[in-house]
Simulated scan of single mutants.
Amino acid sequence: MTETARAERSAPHPYVGMWVTENGHIRHELLPNGRYDEQRGNRRSAYQGRYSVTGSHIDYVDDTGFSADGEFVSLDVLHHGGMVFRRER
Rank of each mutant, 00 (worst) to 15 (best):
4 T>M: 10
6 R>Y: 08
8 E>V: 11
9 R>W: 00
10 S>Q: 14
11 A>R: 13
11 A>C: 01
14 P>R: 14
15 Y>Q: 02
15 Y>E: 02
17 G>L: 03
18 M>T: 14
18 M>F: 00
20 V>N: 01
22 E>Q: 14
25 H>R: 13
30 L>M: 15
32 P>E: 11
32 P>M: 07
33 N>H: 02
33 N>E: 15
33 N>M: 03
35 R>M: 12
35 R>H: 13
35 R>Y: 02
40 R>L: 07
40 R>F: 01
42 N>T: 14
44 R>E: 04
45 S>F: 00
45 S>I: 00
47 Y>A: 08
47 Y>P: 01
49 G>D: 05
50 R>G: 11
50 R>L: 09
51 Y>T: 03
55 G>S: 11
55 G>D: 04
56 S>N: 15
56 S>G: 09
56 S>V: 12
58 I>R: 03
58 I>D: 06
59 D>E: 14
60 Y>D: 08
60 Y>S: 11
61 V>T: 15
62 D>M: 07
62 D>Q: 14
64 T>F: 05
65 G>L: 12
66 F>M: 08
69 D>E: 15
69 D>L: 03
69 D>K: 13
70 G>T: 04
73 V>Q: 12
73 V>S: 14
74 S>W: 03
76 D>T: 13
76 D>F: 03
77 V>R: 08
78 L>T: 03
78 L>I: 06
79 H>M: 13
83 M>A: 14
85 F>L: 14
85 F>D: 07
87 R>A: 10
89 R>D: 03
